[in-house]
């Protein structure tokens, strides 16, 4: 552990790596501190994806972010997937590897969605055992991210933040806190997002996600297709006050603008976080 209390050093302010930006990144080497790559997009034999990733990782720190670990699935862990993930990590040497607190399918099918878990004792034991298994296999601690959700289960005995905290402590894993997902789920399920943030174990929070979203009737959908909104920035500010220097990045998966526009949005995050870092250091 370093002075910050986290296992890994603070990387600063990053972006999700998207194919539309490959060439601009290599040509212009923009002032972005680091990139997050979607692991599955690079679990391929060769060609463009790995060509560009190899070159970009030579200039920027990279972290790997997966969507198909399916840590909460009742199916056995997918050994082939884990083997491919480990092989990719061997090539990319990411600063860390993350995936989501969710399940993505059972009976060997993949719904390609981050489906919510019931927050029960049974699910807790199951997820904890599997995170431990994954961490043993990869030889490193992983980060687990909170997802946006549109439903809750009758059976849930714990709140999401109680569940997430219990998972992290029992599995000894780190956390990727998606500020937008907390906001989205808080709206959809009418809980207090500040209470959520306050409940998380600060020493395990390694990374933040920021993103935009859209509406579908009364529900907010986590679409990553728009700029971050003011209430999410406010929540981010609260999170920085509580957790300190945490590597921050913006996720944009749709309506992807040119890099300068995303860099501007990233600078907004800097402008919020940096004075607070100094305040905490003073």
């Amino acid at each position: 552990m370093n002075a910050n209390g986290k296992t890994h050093p603070h990387l600063g302010f990053g972006l999700g790596l998207r194919t539309t930006h490959y060439q601009a990144i290599l040509n212009e080497r923009p002032a972005i501190d680091w990139f997050e790559v979607l692991s599955e997009n690079y679990m391929v034999a060769g060609g463009k994806p790995l060509h560009f990733l190899d070159r970009i990782r030579a200039h920027y720190p990279v972290v790997m972010h997966g969507v198909s670990l399916s840590i909460g699935s009742a199916d056995p862990l997918n050994k082939h997937y884990l083997r491919d993930l480990k092989a990719l990590a061997g090539r990319v040497e990411p600063r860390w590897i993350s995936d989501h607190l969710c399940w993505t399918g059972v009976q060997r099918k993949n719904m390609h969605d981050l489906l919510p878990l019931p927050y029960t004792e049974e699910a807790l034991q199951h997820v904890v055992a599997r995170i431990r298994q994954v961490q043993d296999f990869l030889g490193r601690r992983i980060l687990i991210e909170n997802v946006s959700s549109y439903l809750t289960y009758v059976d849930s005995a714990l709140s999401e933040w109680e569940f997430l905290r219990a998972v992290a402590e029992a599995a000894d894993c780190l956390l990727l806190v998606d500020i937008n997902n907390i906001y989205v789920s808080a709206q959809n399920h009418q809980f207090d997002p500040v209470e959520y943030i306050n409940a998380l174990p600060a020493e395990r929070v390694q990374q933040f996600h920021l993103a935009g979203h859209s509406y579908n009737g009364p529900m907010i959908i986590d679409t990553h297709d728009a700029p971050v909104i003011d209430p999410v920035w406010a929540l981010y500010e609260h999170a920085v006050r509580r957790f300190g220097r945490v590597s921050t990045m913006i996720e944009r998966d749709d309506n992807i603008p040119e890099l300068p526009e995303l860099i501007q949005e990233l600078n907004h995050a800097r402008a919020i976080a940096e004075p607070l870092y100094r305040e905490r250091a003073a």
Partner: peptide, 12 residues
């Protein structure tokens, strides 16, 4: 089948 298995099978 466990409860988690049931829930996930039905959801899927």
């Amino acid at each position: 089948m466990t409860l988690l298995q049931n829930t996930q099978r039905d959801f899927q």
